[in-house]
């Protein structure tokens, strides 16, 4: 029997689910392996009977935690997809500010009608079994994770930095092009896609398990950033460093 899968979204742009909708020729092969029972972005039907839950987006309100716990209860495997779900993503930029100010900036006079709290990844609320990092996640890595799960395998996600893939791809180092890159501490798995395209790594996959943050900051300063700007480089995607459930 094909495993039943469902997709859910929290605070995010739904760009990761769009990557799945855009799988094109592979989507048919994928549908040969799984039965999709819920996917708001592409279908009307919904069922709470599923084996694998893919969750996009970060948790930014206390009341969202209940929904996450419900999903965890229903699913035997929970997969976080995209940076917001795996590491908190750019939503966590608000965590550097006062939450009341954040509400006022976004909702103005109606701020009191809305709740918010510091943005966090899914695994800050419920245990997560597998991660598809990236902003957005790549189709290739999504398929890699799905295939691994179908084979009963814990998906292998690199614990080495983007530099490894960047070197294999023989890119000119972003620092040598005058860019400020956080690839040396960012978890690989994206095949260094941004640097391949001539830009730099922003860190959307979160840091490796044991990043040498001090050395990375020193490198940024050595190449000409101010200390404050070097610290700022860590804020874009590394805003949540809380504990996992």
């Amino acid at each position: 029997m094909k495993p039943k899968v469902a997709f859910f979204d929290f605070a995010g742009c739904e760009g990761d689910q769009l990557q799945i909708a855009n799988l094109e020729e592979e989507i048919l092969d994928l549908l040969g392996q799984v039965e999709v029972v819920s996917f708001r972005e592409v279908m009307k039907e919904h069922s709470d009977d599923y084996d694998i839950a893919f969750i996009e987006g970060s948790c930014t309100r206390l009341q969202d935690e209940e929904r996450l716990k419900e999903i965890r209860k229903n699913a035997s495997v929970v997969v976080a997809i995209g940076s917001c779900a795996t590491i908190g993503g750019i939503n966590s930029l608000k965590n550097y500010q006062n939450m009341d100010d954040v509400k006022k900036i976004v909702y103005g006079e109606k701020a009191s009608l809305f709740d918010t709290y510091p943005a966090r990844p899914i695994d800050a609320v419920i245990p997560v079994d597998a991660y598809v990092h990236g902003c957005p996640m790549t189709k290739a890595e999504f398929l890699h994770v799905v295939k691994s799960l179908l084979l009963g395998k814990k998906p292998e996600i690199p614990n080495y930095p983007v530099c490894v893939e960047c070197k294999k791809n023989e890119n000119v180092c972003a620092f040598e092009r005058g860019e400020f890159c956080v690839g040396p501490i960012t978890r690989a798995g994206c095949d260094s896609c941004c640097v391949n395209e001539g830009t730099k790594c922003w860190g959307c996959r979160g840091m490796v398990d044991n990043p040498n943050e001090n050395s990375q900051k020193e490198v940024l300063v050595k190449y000409g950033l101010s200390v404050d700007d070097a610290i700022g480089k860590f804020k874009l995607y590394f805003g949540w460093q809380g504990k996992k459930k």
Partner: peptide
């Protein structure tokens, strides 16, 4: 090796 990023470059 204090500053090593363990990046393997």
């Amino acid at each position: 090796s204090e500053e090593c990023l363990s990046c393997g470059s």
